[in-house]
Design a protein around this nucleic acid. Structure first.
Lengths: 192, 192
DNA sequence: CGATCTATATATAATAG
DNA sequence: TCTATTATATATAGATC
C-alpha cells in the first residue's frame, strides 16, 4: 500500500509580501477568517472587547468586532468634537452595519437552533448542515463588504440609534455614578 | 534515564469564559499577542491595512494597527491623559460592560447549542434545560440596547448597502500618505 | 472566489521561574 | 504581570474540485 502523498502539507513560508496575486488573495481570505475566529475566541474566553478592521489591498473594508466594534471605535475616537471625526464616523458606519447584521444573525440562528432542539427534529443531515452554517455565523460569517449609497440611507437609522444610546447613557449617568475606570490611555501601542 | 514529563503540553479546552481570573488574564495576554502577530502578518503578506484593538475586561486598551489610524490615535491621545474624556468614557464603560456580558452569554449559548447539534448528543433533559436558558437569553436580553424591531429596520437599510463605503474610503485615503502599501506597522511584535 | 483534504508549521495550555 | 519549556491543539500552505 504505497501511497503517493496527496499533499506535502503546510509548507513553511516567509512572512513577506506574496507576489502572486491569486495566492495573495487566497491567503488574505484564509487568514482574515483566522483572525476573526481568534478575536471571537479571546472575547468569549476573556470577556474582552476587541475589534478588527481590515482593508484589503483592493480597498474593500471588512470589519469585525465583539461584542461590537463600535465600542472599540469609540474608544479610539473618544471625543465627539475631536478632530478626525470624519474618519471615526466612516469607520463607525462600516462597522455599525456589520454589528447589526451579526446580532440579527445571531438571534435568528439562536431561534433556529432552539426550534430544532425543542421539536426534537434532528435528522443527521439537516443538523449537520445547520451546525455548519451556524458555526460560520458565529465565527464571522456575517462579515460583509459595504458600499456607498447604502451608507447614506443608513445614516438616518444610525442617527436614531445614536440618540437612543445617548438618552440611555444620560439616564445611566444620573442613576449610576459608577466607577469603572475611564478609558485608560494606551498610546499607540508599545505592547501592554 | 527515564524522565518525568515536565509538562502535559497544550490541552484541549472549550471556547467559553474562563472562570479563574488568573488563568483568564494569562490567556488574555497570550492570545492578545497572538492576534497582534496575525494582524501584522496578514498586513505584510497581503498588503492589507488592518488594525486591531483589544480592550481587557478592565477597560485597558492593548493594541493597534494600520498606519493611518495609528496617526490619528497619536493625535487624539497626545499624552497619557487627554482632557475631558473621562466622564463620557466612564458612562460608556458601564453600558458597554453590561452589553458585553449579555453578548458573551449569547455567544456561549451559541457554542453550547452547536456542540450539542454536532455531537448529536441530545439527552432530553439537557436539551430542555438548555433551550430554557437560551430562550431567556434570546428574548429577555434583547441584545444591545436596541430592540429586535429597531434592528430589523436597520437590517432593511443594510440590505441596500453595497457601494457606499468605497467612496468614503477614497476620501479617507486622501489623508493617507501611502495608498495601500504594506502595513508599516505597529505591533507589539517589534521582532518579526 | 470558497470548500475540502493532507501534512506540517504555529499557536498555545499547562507549568515553572 | 513577562519569559521559557514542553507537548499538543490548531491554523494554514498547497493542491484539487
Amino acid at each position: 500500500m504505497d501511497k503517493k502523498p496527496i499533499s506535502k502539507g503546510k509548507q513553511k513560508i516567509d512572512i513577506k509580501e506574496i507576489d502572486d496575486k491569486a495566492n495573495r488573495d487566497v491567503t488574505f481570505s484564509k487568514r482574515r477568517n483566522g483572525i476573526y475566529k481568534k478575536v471571537t475566541e479571546i472575547n468569549t474566553m476573556c470577556g474582552a472587547e476587541s475589534g478588527v478592521v481590515v482593508f484589503s489591498p483592493a480597498g474593500r473594508a471588512f470589519s469585525f468586532g465583539h461584542p461590537d466594534i463600535e465600542t472599540v471605535v469609540n474608544r479610539v475616537f473618544p471625543s465627539p468634537s475631536a478632530p478626525n471625526q470624519g474618519e471615526r464616523d466612516l469607520i463607525l458606519d462600516v462597522v455599525h452595519a456589520n454589528r447589526a447584521e451579526r446580532i440579527v444573525g445571531l438571534n435568528q440562528q439562536q431561534t433556529e437552533l432552539l426550534e430544532i432542539l425543542k421539536n426534537g427534529k434532528h435528522e443527521r443531515d439537516t443538523r449537520k448542515e445547520l451546525a455548519e452554517n451556524s458555526k460560520q455565523q458565529a465565527l464571522g460569517g456575517s462579515i460583509d463588504e459595504f458600499g456607498l449609497e447604502e451608507l447614506k440611507t443608513l445614516k438616518s437609522s444610525l442617527e436614531a440609534l445614536k440618540s437612543n444610546v445617548f438618552n440611555k447613557l444620560e439616564v445611566l449617568n444620573v442613576n449610576d455614578p459608577h466607577e469603572s475606570g475611564p478609558c485608560m490611555d494606551m498610546g499607540p501601542f508599545r505592547g501592554q
